[in-house]
Lab assay of single mutants.
Amino acid sequence: RTAFSSEQLARLKREFNENRYLTERRRQQLSSELGLNEAQIKIWFQNKRA
């Protein structure tokens, strides 16, 4: 289980509010910017949509 920092969570929530689905390219960008792997971001979005 991933423990996200408050900064990472704030960024993910802001991104989710703008778009509930990420393109592969956007997921790669977020992964690089947040220091998370793409799978972690993908799962976070899946869980948030559920």
Rank of each mutant, 00 (worst) to 15 (best):
G35S: 06
I43E: 15
N17F: 11
S32L: 15
I43Y: 12
R11G: 06
T2A: 07
E18F: 07
S31P: 01
E18T: 08
F45H: 01
L36E: 01
E15M: 03
Q46H: 11
S32N: 06
I41T: 01
E15H: 03
Q29L: 10
R20Q: 13
F45N: 00
Q29R: 10
Q29T: 08
L22A: 03
R49V: 10
Q46K: 11
R14H: 13
A39H: 13
R49Q: 10
R26V: 07
L9V: 09
I41M: 03
E15T: 02
L9K: 05
N47K: 12
Q29A: 12
K13R: 11
Q28V: 08
N37G: 12
Q29V: 07
A3T: 10
K42R: 12
E24Y: 08
A50Y: 05
S6I: 11
A50N: 12
T2C: 14
F16P: 00
N37Q: 12
Q8Y: 02
K48T: 12
S32C: 11
E18I: 10
L36M: 07
N37C: 07
S5G: 04
L22Y: 01
Q8I: 13
E38F: 04
K13W: 14
A50D: 11
S31N: 02
A3R: 11
Q46F: 10
A39W: 15
A39E: 15
Q28E: 09
L9C: 13
S32W: 11
S5M: 03
Q8N: 04
S5T: 15
Q28L: 09
N19Y: 06
R25Q: 13
R49G: 08
R20K: 09
R26K: 12
E18S: 08
K48H: 11
R11A: 12
Q40R: 06
T23E: 04
K48W: 09
N37L: 11
R25D: 12
E33T: 04
R11T: 07
Q28M: 09
L36H: 01
Y21S: 05
Q29H: 06
R27D: 01
L30N: 00
I41E: 01
Q8P: 01
R27Y: 12
F45T: 00
W44P: 00
F16C: 03
L12E: 01
Q28F: 07
L9T: 05
R49N: 13
L9G: 01
I43H: 11
L12I: 03
Q46Y: 09
R27P: 02
E24A: 13
R25H: 10
Y21H: 10
Y21D: 08
N17R: 11
N17W: 06
T23Y: 03
R14V: 12
L36W: 02
L22I: 07
Q8T: 06
R25K: 14
N19E: 04
E18V: 07
R27I: 15
S31H: 02
L9Q: 05
N19K: 05
A10W: 06
I43A: 13
R11D: 03
A39S: 10
R11V: 11
A10C: 10
Q28K: 15
L22K: 00
S31M: 05
K13G: 08
E33N: 03
R27E: 09
K42A: 14
R1V: 14
F45K: 00
S6T: 12
Q8G: 01
L12T: 00
L30C: 03
A3C: 09
T2Q: 13
Y21P: 05
G35Q: 07
S5D: 05
S32M: 14
F45G: 00
N37D: 15
S31W: 03
S6H: 10
K48R: 13
R11E: 06
E18H: 09
R1H: 15
F45Q: 01
G35D: 06
Q29W: 07
G35I: 03
E24G: 09
I43V: 10
R49T: 09
T2I: 09
K48G: 06
F16W: 10
E24W: 07
E15Y: 04
E18Q: 11
E24I: 11
W44M: 02
F45E: 02
L9E: 10
Y21M: 06
L36P: 00
W44K: 00
G35K: 06
Q40W: 11
L22F: 03
R26Y: 06
R14W: 08
Q46E: 14
S31F: 03
E18M: 10
S5W: 04
R49L: 11
N47P: 02
R14L: 13
E7F: 09
W44R: 00
R49E: 08
E33W: 04
S32K: 14
S6E: 13
N17I: 08
T23A: 04
E38N: 03
I41L: 08
K13S: 12
E38Y: 04
L34W: 02
N47I: 13
Q8F: 03
A10I: 08
L36K: 02
L30Q: 02
R11M: 07
Q28S: 08
E7R: 07
L34M: 07
N19M: 04
E33A: 05
R20M: 10
R20V: 07
N19A: 04
L30G: 00
S31A: 13
G35E: 06
R27V: 15
T23K: 03
N19R: 06
S31Y: 03
N19W: 04
Y21I: 11
Q28A: 11
I43G: 08
R27N: 09
R14A: 11
E38G: 07
E24K: 14
F45V: 01
S32T: 12
R49M: 12
